[in-house]
Structures are given as C-alpha cells and as structure tokens.
Computed example of a mutant assay.
Amino acid sequence: VLSHLSSADSHSPEAVKYTKAQIDDFSLIVKALQAQMPSVRYFHLAGSAGMVKYPEARFNSARPGLMLYGANPFYPEKLAKLNLDPVMSLVSRICLIKTLPQGSRISYGGKTILKRTSRVGVVPAGYADGIPRSAPPGFEFLVKGKPAPLLGVVTMDLIMVDLTDIPEAKPGDEILLFGREGRSELRVEKLAQACHTISYEIFTRLGKRVKREYLCSE
C-alpha cells in the first residue's frame, strides 16, 4: 500500500501542516489494514524529501529517488546538509573555437551581443540532449575547472560558450555540463535552479543519443 507526500520538500508552515496531516491519515489506514488484512506487508509513503525530514513517514518501506543520484531534494534551501555526492555527470567536448569581434551576435534571435573580442567555443550538446532551452545566457559551465559562460540561447544540437578567459582551452577539451569531473563540480541543482525547474527534470530529459558510461568504484 502506498501514497505520496506532495509537499515534503517545502518548509512553509502550510506545507508542513499538510504533510503531517497526510502522514496521520496514512497511519490510520496502515493500522486498519494491519488489523483486517494482515497479508498486506509493505507500506510506503516517503520519497527522498520525506525520508529525511519526516522519519515517521518511513513506515517499513521508502522510495529514495533523487538522493540516489546525489541530488539534494531541498536545494536551494539549506535545511538539510546531506553531504550527497553526485553520481551522474554530463560531459561534452568543444568541437570548434572561433575568435569573434566585439558586437557579434550569438545564437538565435541575436540577443546576446559580444561586449569584447571573444573566443567562442561551440559544444555539440543542445536541448535535444537534455540541456534545457531555458538555461540563461551567462550560466557558467566548466572547462578545465574554470567558468565558461553560456552565450546566447541553447539550440537543438549546440551551445556556445565564452572561452576568452580560458586561453588554454582547445577543441577536444571536455566541458562539464553538470556533475563532477576530476576536482571540478557543478551541481545539477544549480543548473535546475537557473532554469526554473527541478533536478528530476534535468535527469529524466537526457536524450537517447547521449552516450552512457557506467563506472564502478571498488
């Protein structure tokens, strides 16, 4: 028997009150079923946020989802310092670098106008691969551990980034779109917040053409 806490990740008084009422109601159902239908063995109500914030909602089963990928269900709120390590990373490689003059317009609509002569890197990853089109210009991906701001809007297959302040960057270098690469880390929660969405959506929208590599640590 299962249900779901709709507002466990919120800390507002209204959400807390509603969540506790949900837990109380589910507890009554559990007691009734245990008395009348002892063959029903498993009861689960809590996902990642509920498991952390409401231990009484764990019953004898739970459904950790987001936390399995090392993402914080409370981000950007600071209630829970969960010390979660990201276990999923999205990485691409710079395929082209061009030096463009001040005043050049970048990407669809031409709304991003270069304020200086810039080294512009082209990266073969776009919204068809899972990078939200709502990612704002200026959002900082990482190249060699250094910020590489997004230039212009995300296209279907490509993004453009500013490599002016990373003179050592060259075609073939990796760019971290989220996750962890060596000592560099870019939290998926940060990308989700910038795109006005949640980490779940970032994870689940990764396209089929994104190559998967599964790494095991001993």
Score class of each variant (00 low, 15 high):
residue 81 K to L: 07
residue 126 G to M: 13
residue 177 L to V: 02
residue 76 P to N: 12
residue 76 P to S: 10
residue 152 G to E: 09
residue 130 G to T: 06
residue 203 F to K: 06
residue 152 G to Y: 05
residue 96 L to I: 04
residue 94 I to V: 13
residue 184 S to K: 03
residue 136 P to I: 14
residue 173 D to N: 14
residue 203 F to P: 07
residue 139 F to W: 01
residue 111 K to T: 13
residue 87 V to D: 07
residue 160 M to I: 00
residue 45 L to R: 04
residue 71 A to R: 06
residue 210 V to M: 07
residue 81 K to E: 14
residue 93 R to S: 09
residue 215 L to E: 14
residue 203 F to M: 15
residue 164 T to H: 12
residue 110 G to D: 02
residue 88 M to W: 10
residue 213 E to H: 05
residue 180 R to D: 05
residue 137 P to C: 08
residue 90 L to F: 15
residue 158 L to P: 01
residue 121 G to N: 07
residue 180 R to K: 15
residue 55 P to M: 05
residue 121 G to K: 00
residue 46 A to E: 10
residue 34 Q to I: 00
residue 153 V to F: 11
residue 185 E to H: 05
residue 72 N to G: 00
residue 170 K to R: 15
residue 203 F to W: 11
residue 32 A to G: 12
residue 105 R to K: 15
residue 76 P to H: 10
residue 193 Q to S: 14
residue 179 G to M: 04
residue 116 R to Q: 14
residue 115 K to M: 06
residue 6 S to Q: 14
residue 34 Q to H: 11
residue 18 Y to F: 13
residue 56 E to F: 08
residue 140 E to S: 11
residue 138 G to A: 02
residue 131 I to Q: 09
residue 10 S to P: 00
residue 9 D to G: 11
residue 11 H to F: 14
residue 139 F to I: 05
residue 64 P to F: 07
residue 192 A to N: 03
residue 150 L to E: 03
residue 209 R to C: 05
residue 117 T to M: 04
residue 29 I to C: 10
residue 34 Q to W: 08
residue 130 G to S: 04
residue 135 A to D: 00
residue 202 I to N: 05
residue 187 R to Y: 08
residue 135 A to N: 06
residue 43 F to E: 02
residue 74 F to W: 02
residue 213 E to N: 10
residue 134 S to R: 11
residue 168 E to M: 14
residue 187 R to M: 07
residue 118 S to N: 09
residue 161 V to N: 00
residue 54 Y to T: 03
residue 95 C to Q: 07
residue 194 A to N: 13
residue 30 V to L: 09
residue 166 I to H: 00
residue 67 M to W: 05
residue 208 K to W: 11
residue 48 S to D: 04
residue 57 A to E: 11
residue 176 L to T: 00
residue 73 P to W: 11
residue 91 V to L: 07
residue 199 S to D: 03
residue 27 S to F: 04
residue 79 L to V: 08
residue 84 L to G: 13
residue 130 G to Q: 06
residue 132 P to Y: 04
residue 24 D to P: 03
residue 98 K to S: 01
residue 173 D to T: 02
residue 46 A to C: 12
residue 28 L to D: 12
residue 51 M to N: 04
residue 210 V to R: 05
residue 218 E to T: 15
residue 172 G to W: 00
residue 195 C to A: 11
residue 131 I to R: 04
residue 30 V to K: 13
residue 107 S to W: 07
residue 197 T to Y: 15
residue 99 T to E: 14
residue 81 K to S: 15
residue 137 P to N: 02
residue 148 A to M: 01
residue 114 L to C: 06
residue 80 A to Y: 06
residue 36 Q to W: 06
residue 174 E to P: 01
residue 155 T to I: 04
residue 113 I to A: 02
residue 1 V to S: 09
residue 9 D to Y: 12
residue 167 P to K: 04
residue 76 P to V: 09
residue 63 R to I: 11
residue 102 Q to I: 15
residue 194 A to F: 08
residue 97 I to K: 00
residue 201 E to M: 12
residue 79 L to W: 15
residue 59 F to S: 08
residue 29 I to Y: 00
residue 171 P to W: 01
residue 94 I to P: 02
residue 168 E to T: 12
residue 175 I to R: 01
residue 185 E to P: 03
residue 191 L to A: 06
residue 96 L to Y: 11
residue 113 I to N: 04
residue 39 S to H: 15
residue 104 S to G: 03
residue 161 V to Y: 03
residue 77 E to N: 12
residue 73 P to K: 05
residue 93 R to H: 05
residue 187 R to C: 03
residue 167 P to E: 10
residue 135 A to I: 07
residue 162 D to H: 02
residue 127 Y to M: 04
residue 84 L to F: 09
residue 168 E to A: 15
